[in-house]
Design a protein around this nucleic acid. Structure first.
Length: 287
DNA sequence: CGCCAGGATACCC
DNA sequence: GGGTATCATGGC
């Protein structure tokens, strides 16, 4: 069940060997709509913040062997990134042959990993996402981090890269609504303030191992968090892979390919992954 | 310019 | 229970 990796040095960087795009496709994983803060540099390197540290990841074929090059130490790769990228195991999906759209989506979306994102960042990010488009969501979250997050930087090959951490719950709990003016949050500003002052602790919720149903109910007790946002937080922040967020794009799929009635239970414990394959398919291949 | 966006809420019947 | 007006903002 467990996946092991081989390593080597590549010009002073950690190189993970034999890790191809079928297992993890960085472009699909970071562009599929589950996260909003990873950035692709001109040379194809992805740069992002995990556990308040800056990490860089890049696909590179070396002598025909698919590899990933990273600035991470081996220790951080094993302790942080493997978990964050959900690389401890391979996804084992079974779709009925009759479900042609889902089977096609699994092929198109192959390589997407469901990230184990920070639950608090995920909650606020998807509160912001409601009734917004993806470019706007990214801009707004970036402004929020730039105003209230801590500045962190790394130096790689003589070049300094600077990012901001995502502002913590404690940080935002000290703010008032007017402190959020100018970020483009619109009516969602008070939802964020309320969440920061709520007793709901999404970290404890993640670690408590409660059922998805219970987690969804607790998340929806937050003001401004309805079924869709709760499902996204559960999937991307609590790693509840059986939930199935339905937004306007997924509803179009359901109406167009499933006559308005989809059998989510037929997708089993990886329904959320299949949902993400479908979302990626309609947003980036047919949309 | 108008339409739409990874929706939720309050209020109606 | 189900249907709908309203909610800010900006990308396109």
């Amino acid at each position: 069940m467990g996946v092991s990796y081989d390593y080597m040095d590549y010009n002073g960087f950690l190189c993970i060997k034999n890790i191809g795009r079928d297992l993890i496709d960085l472009d699909k994983t970071f562009e599929c709509g589950q996260c909003f803060r990873w950035e692709k540099l001109a040379d194809g390197t992805w740069i992002g913040v995990v556990n308040n540290k800056i990490f860089m990841l890049k696909h590179k074929d070396i002598n025909g062997v698919p590899c990933i090059i990273t600035n991470s130490t081996l220790e951080d790769w094993k302790n942080i990134l493997v978990d964050y990228l959900d690389l401890n195991y391979a996804y084992n999906i079974s779709i009925p042959d009759s479900d042609k759209f889902a089977k096609q989506a699994c092929e198109i979306g192959k390589g997407i990993r469901i990230l184990k994102q920070d639950p608090w960042e995920t909650l606020i990010s998807f509160i912001i996402s409601q009734r917004n488009n993806i470019p706007k969501i990214k801009t707004t979250i970036s402004k929020l981090c730039n105003r209230f997050g801590d500045i962190i930087s790394i130096k790689v090959n003589g070049v300094t890269y600077t990012k901001n951490t995502f502002p913590s719950k404690q940080c935002i709990s000290k703010l008032s609504i007017s402190d959020l003016d100018g970020l483009g949050l619109g009516y969602r500003d008070r939802y964020i303030i309320e969440a920061a002052n709520s007793d709901v602790d999404v970290y404890k919720l993640r670690d408590s191992k409660v059922s998805s149903e219970v987690a969804l109910n607790i998340l929806q007790s937050l003001y401004g968090v309805g079924p869709k946002v709760a499902n996204c937080v559960a999937l991307f922040g609590l790693h509840k892979l059986d939930v199935f967020p339905i937004d306007v794009w997924m509803q179009r799929i359901i109406d167009q390919y499933y006559n308005g009635d989809i059998d989510i239970k037929s997708y089993g414990s990886l329904a959320g992954l299949i949902q993400q394959y479908m979302f990626y398919t309609i947003r980036f291949f047919e949309g």
